[in-house]
Amino acid sequence: MHIFANPARFVRLANKILPWAIGVLALCLPYGLYLAIVASPPDYQQGDSVRIMYIHVPSAWMAMFTYMVMASASLAAIVWRHPLALIAGKAAAPIGATFTALALITGALWGKPMWGTYWVWDGRLTSVLILFFLYLGYMAIWQAMDDEETAGRAASILALVGVVNLPIIKFSVDWWNTLHQPASVIRLDGPTIHADLLGPLLWMAVAMKAYFIIVFLWRMKLEINKRKLAVLQMSVVNAHG
């Protein structure tokens, strides 16, 4: 029935990808951090506090990227009822919530020296906060229901509804006049950010993506093992009438 991916095949594939992802992380994270903290110049206006950006911006990208992974998995789970898709969403959610929290916290720490306040209620910050709540809601549904499949499909419905929030996050800085600066890397007319800053940013972005892949695959393998265990437990119960 599920020819395209059965768990055993998926685990074999994951085991092939994992060493590479770990290698990329081992390479990019130290180098990216070195560039970000030591090698890159301080900003002429912001001084050393610009270095928060190298964590903040990739985290924010990952927060949205992970949500897209979760939403795509949810769509697959609802449309094709693919059991692995349910697991993929479940595996991605806490990682996404963590990246979102990281983006919010680093943003607050960066905001204090720059804007003079940890938090402003503008479009970007509010919509990212909503993203964080959506992750929490998704995980809460998984938590609240006994039956794994029902819980997963219910959570998937919420994840798909929450997709509306993604364009709001992306365009909030253009739609509202706010303290948060508009996009400077991903834009149609090319990046406006200085190359000295762009380098470490991209290294950190690659490192975080590798980190995501590693934890994501680990968590999926964990969920698959949990289900294997459940099957074993059920067979013990059944064997004793």
Binding site: H2, P7, P83, K228, A230, V231, M234, S235
Partner: peptide, 9 residues
């Protein structure tokens, strides 16, 4: 018979 639970194993 619970033998077709083999999807996960």
């Amino acid at each position: 018979k619970q033998k077709d639970m083999g999807y996960w194993s």
